[in-house]
Design a protein around this nucleic acid. Structure first.
Lengths: 184, 184
DNA sequence: GGCAGATTCTTCGTATGCAAAGCAAATTGA
DNA sequence: TCAATTTGCTTTGCATACGAAGAATCTGCC
């Protein structure tokens, strides 16, 4: 372990790195907006809407880790551009079911990644174990900071080399009901 | 390396982890605001103002990795509460020199860390090499995403309260590979 | 001196992002 | 059955965040 003075150093460095990362994400979001007309959160939301066929707004919010209020604003902008459609739920008329329009899917097909190309290229040049280590560390930090928010979902564990990593064991494949976020 | 389909998975997991991290930071910022009256960016700014004795607004913005426009808003709120004071530069009357008031220093002395206590406790329980690995990975990711912004310098060492307004790239150059493991 | 260009900060417009309050629909309980 | 609660979304208020444009100032060149 480190002494208290070193801990202060460590804290500051972590804070600085996180701030740098957040800024980079924000800047890339604005660049996305210029290039394809969608900001980062909008693109992430549209992708998730398209992946699942028809989702409630709250489920959507949880999937992309946003509050419901923020999701409302994003959906408003997406809807205003005709990229998604809002429908009232049949059985439960409180819920709003969101679905991607044809235009939305078309835009999505042309949209770039949520990560900068530069970053992806650099990442691709790394060895697989390095990629997984970085992901694991990122997830670990997220979990450590997220913990107070009660997320029981286990995340990526870097397995010894014999595990067949066809699919990384984090988010389950689409199954629309079991959201992995069931804390009520 | 991983195949293209796994890369897509990797991208998505990284995006999700980053989003989770950003949300956690935001939530902690709001908690800070309730507890000590200062949000995360405000506290970070006030700390930096106090550390250096008197800084220009632009230097401050670069130090905490914010744009000048954002810094203006934060300084407005800090000034309105009497925590910092703005003064015109003597030689260069374009610059705004920011300094912490007595009240600002008093508030600062009582303010908690920018990181959640939960996170810090968890971090402290880890071995030193693990702490450094996590920091190094975080800095590496930040650098990889930051690179396009020409910043390129992962500042491992917290700069001394130099007060001399340094020019552009500013941050002490550190070879990007071993940045986390340089003790001095 | 005097003016063109650069630099510094502020203002404006837009998009996140959250909590809390508000509203409507569904569920529960007596 | 119908009031009380819960649930799902929207609205409101505030604080980031950014770029672009504007105002004030400085610098260099003549």
């Amino acid at each position: 372990m480190l002494g208290p003075s070193d801990d202060l150093q460590l804290d500051d460095l972590i804070v600085a790195a996180i701030r740098r990362l957040m800024r980079a994400v924000d800047l890339h979001s604005r660049r996305l907006a210029e290039e394809c007309g969608l900001t980062g959160p909008q693109l992430a939301t549209l992708r998730e809407v398209d992946r699942r066929r028809s989702v409630s707004a709250s489920t959507l919010a949880r999937s992309v880790h946003l509050s419901g209020a923020t999701m409302t604003g994003i959906l408003n902008r997406l809807e205003k551009r005709g990229l998604v459609a809002r429908t009232r739920g049949e059985q439960d008329r409180r819920t709003i079911l969101v679905s991607a329009t044809d235009l939305g899917q078309a835009v999505l097909a042309r949209a770039p990644s949520l990560l900068q190309d530069e970053f992806r290229e650099r990442l691709e040049r790394l060895e697989a174990w390095e990629q997984l280590m970085m992901l694991a560390n990122l997830q670990r930090i997220a979990s450590m900071m997220d913990a107070e928010a009660l997320d029981a979902a286990p995340h990526l564990i870097v397995e010894p080399p014999d595990a067949t990593n066809e699919r990384l064991p984090s988010e389950p494949p689409v199954s629309p009901g079991d959201d992995a976020f069931r804390h009520n």
